[in-house]
Every structure is written in structure tokens, then in C-alpha cells.
């Protein structure tokens, strides 16, 4: 009896946005009288961080510190339409809508600043700390708080903007499947290192090497959390998870987390992750949707590593100890019965 080590690979791509498009999202943005910009959305943050990404996209476009941006979501009485948080679409759709809204608001902001400073709006820039200033003459500047007050009380202007992103819906050709399904594709490759206990059938994933091409890491910390969490889910799908362990039989379905297992802290492999960025022309600052993709490559990489370790080819998910042991038994029978 032995611990058998193996390595397996898998490479994947993943589409951004709802299949075939037709999934719009809107954003509205306005400045309060003291220069805080409120983004109104109806988008849902499931924990992945869309509120933070929306604020970053707005701050970047406005040229203001992120502290000047608030996100108000999700209330259907006050927020404009969002199709929803799924299909790796949140960052791409909502990010683009926010950028469009913020760009319109920025235009008004610069126009009002031009009036206040008595210069041409085209000669103005933002410095990222809260000031709008004349290019090449940095002492000629105005802070967004003073500007927003002036816009409201002196000029009668709203500093606001509207944004929407829609990939127009398309339909597949029924005969051939010709279609335009995606906005862009993200990519990933996983190398998994596993150890198989040939006595118990237990598979332990020791290490994952993951390279991800994601367009642009808008927030590198959240992107890291997303890929690491996603890879964990891939390990979980590979080794543990199903509501019907003897599918297609409906028997023995788990009803709680005592019967429905997922990797605990001791089961988590060492993860080595690397980002590549090939910006998407239609992505917000080049970003692609990566939420769903990150769970996918680890599953076949683990299946292939198990084969590499012990010669058992698992064709059914999940790769439970029972399946590994049955596979090992079948291999032994094959050796004993020469054909």
C-alpha cells in the first residue's frame, strides 16, 4: 500500500456575458452638492465585490479619489435596471455602464470647472486627489467640493451622467449552430499535483499551478481572491460534491453539510497563481469576466493527475474514494486476467 503521486493538466477558456447577449445593465451617477458622486445601480453583490469594482471604475473615469464615490445598490425603486449577477457579466456589463455614466458626468464637471476658472474645458485635467486643474499651470485649480457647490448654487448645473451596456441579442441558426455567443473569452491553465492513497482511495490535492488570462486585473487583491476561491471550488467539485452520489439513483442524497462535503482547511492545496492581461477591446479598462471560469480547469487537471498517479481513469464526477478504489480493483483484475 502506498501514496502515489501524479500530475495532470487542463486548459480552458470561458465566455464573458450571457450567452447570445441581450443582457443590459444601467448605471446612473450624480454629484452631491459637496462633491461626492453617488452611483445608482440595481446590481447585486454576491460577495464577489461588484460594489468595489463599480466605485473603482467611476473614480478612474472621473479622475477623483475613490473616497469621493459611493455606490447605492440594489433597490428597484431607485436603481436603474441590471440583468443580474451571473454569467461572468457583472464587472464587464456594470463596469462599462459605470464608465459611460462617469464619462458624461466628467464632461459636465470639466465644463463647470472651465467656467469657474475662466479657461477652456479642453485644457483641464484631473489630478486624482480631488482637484481639477489647468494643464501646465497647476496653481490654477479648483477642488471638487468647491466645484460641486458652485455647480448647484451658482451655475444651476447637475453634474451627472447615464450609462448602459448592451450586447445586442442574437439568435443561433438552428441547422448549424452559427451564433455570436460571447463578448470576449478569458483563459486558464492548471497543473495539479495529487497524491492518491491506494489503500483508502482518498485523493489529496497537494498543489495547483494556475495561469489566468483575465484582460485586466481591475483590483489585484479581489482578482486573487476570486481565482483562489474559484480553484477551491474546482477542487471541491472534483473530489466531493454532489446532491445525488449514486446518480441516476435518487437515493442517499445529502441534506446538510455533514453529508455534503467540501474541502476544509486541511484539504486546501498550495495555490500558485499568475495573471496575464490581454485587454479586451470591449471590456471596462480591458477587463474580462472571470468569475465562473476559475472553477473549471482544476477538475479535469485533478482527473488527469489521478490517472498519472495510479492509472485509474475516472469518467464520472466526483472522484470519490469509492470510485478510485473500484478503479484500482478493475486494474488489478485486468492484470490477473490476461487477454
Amino acid at each position: 500500500m502506498a501514496l502515489l503521486r501524479g500530475r495532470g493538466y487542463a486548459s480552458v477558456n470561458y465566455p464573458t456575458g450571457m450567452n447570445l447577449g441581450g443582457d443590459p445593465s444601467q448605471a446612473l451617477i450624480h454629484a452631491t452638492t459637496t462633491g461626492t458622486f453617488v452611483i445608482s445601480l440595481s446590481s447585486v453583490d454576491l460577495g464577489q465585490g461588484i460594489k468595489t469594482i463599480a466605485a473603482q471604475c467611476a473614480a478612474e473615469t472621473l479622475g477623483l479619489p475613490i473616497a469621493n464615490v459611493l455606490v447605492d445598490t440594489a433597490d428597484t425603486d431607485t436603481g436603474p435596471h441590471c440583468m443580474g449577477t451571473f454569467a461572468s457579466r457583472g464587472t464587464h456589463r456594470v463596469g462599462n455602464a459605470v464608465i459611460m455614466a462617469a464619462a458624461e458626468a466628467r464632461g459636465v464637471m470639466l465644463e463647470v470647472a472651465a467656467e469657474e476658472l475662466e479657461v477652456d474645458a479642453a485644457d483641464l485635467e484631473t489630478d486624482g486627489t480631488g482637484f481639477i486643474r489647468l494643464k501646465g499651470a497647476e496653481e490654477k485649480r479648483i477642488h471638487i467640493t468647491d466645484l460641486a457647490l458652485a455647480a448647484h448654487f451658482k451655475h444651476g448645473r447637475t453634474i451627472s451622467g447615464r450609462g448602459i451596456y448592451l450586447k445586442e441579442p442574437s439568435a443561433p441558426v438552428p441547422e448549424t449552430g452559427e451564433m455570436d455567443p460571447d463578448s470576449c473569452q478569458a483563459h486558464a491553465c492548471t497543473a495539479a499535483v495529487v497524491e492518491v492513497d491506494d489503500e483508502t482511495g482518498v485523493v489529496e490535492v497537494l498543489e495547483l499551478y494556475n495561469a489566468y488570462e483575465i484582460g485586466r486585473a481591475l483590483n489585484p487583491a479581489m482578482a486573487t481572491q476570486q481565482v483562489e476561491g474559484g480553484a477551491w471550488m474546482g477542487v471541491s467539485h472534483a473530489l466531493f460534491e454532489t446532491t445525488e452520489p449514486y446518480y441516476p439513483s435518487r437515493e442517499h442524497g445529502p441534506r446538510d453539510f455533514a453529508g455534503y462535503l467540501m474541502p476544509g482547511p486541511a484539504d486546501i492545496p498550495v495555490q500558485h497563481s499568475l495573471f496575464l492581461e490581454r485587454p479586451a477591446g470591449n471590456g471596462p479598462y480591458g477587463a474580462k469576466g472571470i468569475g465562473e471560469m476559475t472553477a473549471n480547469a482544476p477538475i479535469p487537471a485533478i482527473a488527469n493527475a489521478i490517472f498519472d498517479a495510479c492509472g485509474v481513469r475516472l469518467e464520472s464526477m466526483p472522484f470519490t474514494p469509492e470510485r478510485v478504489l473500484r478503479g484500482l480493483d478493475a486494474l488489478r483484475l485486468k492484470v490477473e486476467e490476461p487477454c
Partner: peptide, 24 residues
């Protein structure tokens, strides 16, 4: 990356995009 990463005024680098901002 460079072609797509010019920031809002066309000249400089990003100020917020690509930075770590604490999850709100």
C-alpha cells in the same frame, strides 16, 4: 497592455484601476 492602459486623460497611468482597494 500599454495601448489599453493610458488612463482617463490619455497621458498617464491609471490612478485607481489596477490598484488594491479594500472591498467596500
Amino acid at each position: 497592455r500599454a495601448a489599453a492602459g493610458t488612463g482617463v486623460d490619455g497621458g498617464g497611468d491609471f490612478t485607481v484601476i489596477g490598484s488594491v482597494v479594500q472591498r467596500s
